[in-house]
Every structure is written in structure tokens, then in C-alpha cells.
């Protein structure tokens, strides 16, 4: 069972194995060896990869690993297999409309109990000076609205919970 890191919504599986000199990094289509990491402080270190040394700045925040290498910044999320596989296959998950980006609610156009079809406007949000309409992902009944007008929310926040008709 390989390890997995999510970067920008894409999963990257990998495995690390020990060798006489540092570690070998097994990626989907290549093996890079040796790789090693020497920590210099709580937030800096030197990555040695295929004979090159790269200064790395890092912060580990739970499952998130924030990295700055060669002028680029990326955040990688370690996917714990126990959690990841447990979460899948959950057929009872209610339908929800989530925030595509952080923002603020401008106007809510439905009420709990309303029957909506896929594409029905649920609310208007404002983000980045632009108004965006949040639409129903599927047919269903509005069960709960999680935000109020003028309320701010983060990316991926659940805005509206729907239930399936006849459930």
C-alpha cells in the first residue's frame, strides 16, 4: 500500500525505501536515488536529490506540508490511508452544495423545504469582486442552509444541504 500526497487536487502515490546512502524515492514512473533531507532548523533544511542540493523552507501543519523550493511554493497533503479508504464508499452522504472559493453571501434565493432541480440557483455569493451563482448539483429538496446573508465562508464550506426526494 503506497503512500499518497495530494497536491492541487491531484493524488501522487509514492514510496520511500531506505538504502545504504539515504533513501530511494519511488514515484509512479521513476525512481530517484539517493534522496535525503537534513533539517537545519524548525523550518529550513537541505534536500539532496539526485546529486543536487536544494535549500528548502518548510512548515508542517498537521497533514499539510507547506514547502518552498527554488522559488516555488506548494502545499502537499499527506493522505492517511485509514481515513482515505474509510471515507470512500459512503453511500449515505447527503448531497451538498459547497463553496467553490472563499467569499460572502450576497443573497439566498431558496428556503428549506423548497424542491430544486439540478442547476437551480441556490444563492448568490460574492468573491473577488465578482458575483457567482451557486447552483444545485442535483435534484432534491433544500434541507438546510448553512449560511446567512452577508456571512463570510471559507473555500469548500458547505453552503446548502439537500436531501433526495423519497429518501
Amino acid at each position: 500500500m503506497y503512500h499518497s500526497f495530494e497536491v492541487d487536487g491531484v493524488d501522487h502515490t509514492l514510496w520511500l525505501s531506505a538504502s545504504r546512502h539515504g533513501y530511494r524515492l519511488h514515484l509512479r514512473d521513476e525512481v530517484i536515488a539517493p534522496v535525503a533531507f537534513t533539517e537545519r532548523s524548525d523550518s529550513s533544511g537541505i534536500l539532496t536529490i539526485a546529486g543536487q542540493s536544494e535549500p528548502v523552507r518548510f512548515v508542517i501543519d498537521g497533514e499539510l506540508i507547506h514547502l518552498h523550493i527554488r522559488g516555488r511554493t506548494r502545499t502537499l497533503r499527506y493522505i492517511d490511508p485509514l481515513g482515505a479508504y474509510a471515507a470512500g464508499n459512503d453511500g449515505t452522504c447527503p448531497l451538498v452544495a459547497r463553496a467553490p472559493m472563499p467569499g460572502r453571501v450576497v443573497a439566498i434565493t431558496v428556503s428549506p423545504g423548497d424542491s430544486v432541480s439540478a442547476g437551480t440557483a441556490l444563492m448568490m455569493i460574492e468573491s473577488m469582486k465578482l458575483e457567482t451563482i451557486i447552483r444545485s448539483p442535483q435534484d432534491g429538496i433544500v434541507e438546510r442552509i448553512h449560511v446567512k446573508e452577508n456571512e463570510s465562508f471559507e473555500h469548500d464550506a458547505v453552503l446548502v444541504t439537500l436531501s433526495k426526494e423519497g429518501f
Binding site: M1, L82, Y85, A86
Partner: peptide
């Protein structure tokens, strides 16, 4: 209790 075979295997590895 495992929700899938892979979940069960992850538990077993743990």
C-alpha cells in the same frame, strides 16, 4: 469494521 477491502487492508497494516 471496514468499509472496503482496501480500508480493511489499511487497518491490518496499522
Amino acid at each position: 469494521f471496514a468499509t472496503s477491502e482496501l480500508h480493511a487492508i489499511a487497518i491490518a497494516r496499522n
